[in-house]
């Protein structure tokens, strides 16, 4: 199945380049969608179905549609005709190179990286019956399958409950803020 990994990685890289290189903002946006889809496929290959699907649902399905929406409402012509700023181009290239060097340096010192793609092994060291999971999920654990939705849900609502609440409040605050900003007159 490594073939699939390379296929989807290639899709991601090509469309990632497309985002940066294309002059038309709509093409950029669509390339970004393609890149998200490739990423989702990679997640799914790692047995992380939930994250992969959410990646599509949230980013490709909702956020990028809004992006596209805004891009279409704006005038594209100006962006297409803008000449390339070579200084900024060189700066960006250098930054990307530095980042790549740093990443490879970190990865070469990272032992867990040698283990290979065995997310299941890591997961199955867990207890076979986790408290608070429905019976169907426990059954899957016993069968050496990964009920990842249940596990993610359990984690969020037990171990990371407080951060979840904080994030919720944060989102609420920003929503209220947006509503106040979009209303011209407050009566």
């Amino acid at each position: 199945m490594e073939v699939l990994f390379y296929i989807f990685s290639a899709i991601m890289i090509v469309s990632g380049l497309g985002v940066v290189a294309s002059r038309n903002p709509v093409t950029s946006a669509m390339c970004l969608v393609g890149s998200f889809l490739g990423l989702a496929a990679l997640f799914i290959q790692l047995d992380a179905f939930f994250i992969g699907i959410i990646q599509i649902l949230v980013y490709a399905g909702a956020v990028m549609v809004l992006f596209l929406f805004i891009i279409m409402l704006l005038d594209l012509k100006a962006e297409e005709k803008k000449s390339v700023n070579y200084m900024a181009f060189a700066g960006g290239l250098i930054l990307a190179l530095i980042f790549m060097v740093q990443l490879s340096a970190v990865l070469s010192n990272f032992e867990a990286g040698d283990v290979g793609f065995t997310p299941r092994q890591a997961q199955l060291t867990l207890d076979k019956d986790l408290a608070g999971l429905p019976e169907s999920a426990n059954e899957k654990l016993r069968e050496d399958k990964l009920p990842d939705v249940h596990l993610v849900g359990r984690m969020i609502f037990t171990k990371y409950n407080f951060p979840l609440q904080v994030v919720g409040v944060l989102l609420l605050v920003s929503t209220v803020g947006v509503i106040i900003l979009s209303k011209r007159k407050l009566s």
């Binding site: 669509m30 179905f49 279409m72 939705v149």
Partner: peptide, 21 residues
């Protein structure tokens, strides 16, 4: 799929691209 319903929503949400484009 274990995440069948989410899969449906995810893929269905891509349908809007056709119309918008």
């Amino acid at each position: 799929l274990d995440v069948g319903i989410l899969f449906v929503f995810a893929i269905a949400s891509l349908g809007v691209y056709g119309i918008v484009l």
